[in-house]
Design a protein around this nucleic acid. Structure first.
Length: 292
DNA sequence: CTTCTTGTTACTGA
DNA sequence: ATCAGTAACAAGAA
C-alpha cells in the first residue's frame, strides 16, 4: 500500500531516469486500468516525453512536454518498475521502485503488467497492479489543477502549518484516524503511517477529535512530520520480498512500532501487548498503555 | 469454504 | 450544505 513516502520515493527515482526521453513505444495490456480513450492515450504519449514528475498525496503526475499530465495512482498494489537498458553501466543495471508483491525485473512484463512504456534509449517503465485498483489517466493542465486542488494540506511542505492543522479538527467529531486518512484534509497518509503517527503522538486512533487537547493536536502534527520525513529518508515501508537494485530491502520496516505488531510486546513501555481493533473500517494497531 | 487485506468513492442518513 | 459511517470494489493469502 504505497503511501506518501513510498510514492515520493518512486517519484524521485523515476525523475532521475525517464525525464526528456522520447516515448518510442507504448503497450496497453489491460485497457481497464487506462481511464483515457485508447486512441487519445496513444496519440498523446507516442513520441512525447516527460519534463517533470509531481506528487500530491499519493497521486503521481507526469508532466508532458506540451502541458498535459499523465496521472498515475497505485492504490493498494500498483507498482511502477523501471528497467534501464543493458548498455547502462552495471551499477545502474536495474532500478526497482514501487510496492509489493515483488516481481523480478528480468521477468517483466508479467501477467500483472498492464501498461508498458519503452523510451528511446531502451529504458522500460512497467505499470503493474495485482488487484487493478490503480489507474493511469491523461488530463489537461486545468483538469490536473482541479484534481490536485481538492487534496488537503501536504505534510512535507512549507504549507504544513500547525495553525492550518488545528483548523482541520475544529467542528469535527470523527475519530482521529479517519481524519488522518481523509485525503481532502491531509494528503498522503494511509493505514500504516496513520497508526504509527497516533502511537508516536500517544493518542488513541479512535478518539473523537473533538476531545483532543491543543497539546495533543500539536503532538499529532509533529508526529506526522517526523514519521513521514523518516519514512521518506528510509525509502518507504516494505512487507514482502521487495528489494531494490542493490538488493536492499525497504528501509522503514524496522522502525514500525505498532503496525502489524498486534499480540507482541509494546517496544516503548515493554509492559503490554499491542492490540488490534477496527477504526474507520480499517485494521488499527495501538498500545493501550502508551496511548490515551 | 470463509475471512482478511486497503485507497478511494458512492451512498445513506443525520 | 456539511459531516460521519458503511459498503463496495479486486483478488490473493491464510
Amino acid at each position: 500500500m504505497p503511501e506518501l513516502p513510498e510514492v515520493e520515493t518512486i517519484r524521485r527515482d523515476l525523475e532521475r531516469v525517464i525525464l526528456h526521453k522520447q516515448i518510442a513505444d507504448l503497450e496497453i495490456h489491460l485497457g481497464r486500468v487506462v481511464k483515457t480513450d485508447f486512441l487519445r492515450f496513444i496519440a498523446t504519449l507516442q513520441d512525447n516525453h516527460f519534463v517533470r514528475i509531481h506528487r500530491t498525496g499519493k497521486l503521481l503526475q507526469f508532466e508532458l512536454a506540451h502541458g498535459e499530465f499523465l496521472l498515475v495512482h497505485l492504490k493498494m498494489t500498483g507498482q511502477l518498475i523501471c528497467r534501464l537498458p543493458e548498455s547502462a553501466n552495471a551499477l545502474n543495471a536495474g532500478l526497482i521502485v514501487g510496492g509489493h508483491p515483488m516481481a523480478s525485473i528480468d521477468e517483466l512484463p508479467n501477467k500483472y503488467t498492464h501498461v508498458e512504456f519503452t523510451f528511446e534509449d531502451g529504458t522500460k517503465l512497467f505499470f503493474n497492479d495485482v488487484r487493478t485498483f490503480g489507474y493511469v489517466e491523461l488530463v489537461s493542465a486545468e483538469e490536473r489543477a482541479d484534481i490536485v486542488g481538492k487534496f488537503g494540506i501536504e505534510p512535507l511542505t512549507q504549507n504544513f502549518l500547525l495553525e492550518d492543522f488545528e483548523k482541520i479538527f475544529q467542528k469535527r467529531t470523527a475519530p482521529l484516524k479517519s481524519i488522518l486518512l481523509n485525503q481532502q484534509l491531509v494528503s498522503g497518509i494511509g493505514n500504516i503511517y496513520a497508526d504509527e503517527i497516533c502511537f508516536r503522538a500517544k493518542v488513541m486512533p479512535d478518539i473523537s477529535v473533538s476531545k483532543l487537547s491543543k497539546q495533543e493536536i500539536k503532538r499529532v502534527f509533529n508526529a506526522t512530520q517526523n514519521i513521514l520525513e523518516k519514512a521518506v529518508l528510509k525509502r518507504g515501508t516494505t512487507f514482502s520480498d521487495y528489494v531494490d537494485a542493490q538488493g536492499k530491502k525497504g528501509g522503514y520496516l524496522p522502525y514500525l512500532k505498532v503496525y502489524q505488531r498486534d499480540g507482541r510486546l509494546c517496544l516503548r513501555c515493554e509492559e503490554v501487548k499491542i492490540q488490534k481493533i477496527r477504526v474507520a473500517g480499517r485494521g488499527t494497531h495501538f498500545c493501550p498503555n502508551c496511548q490515551r
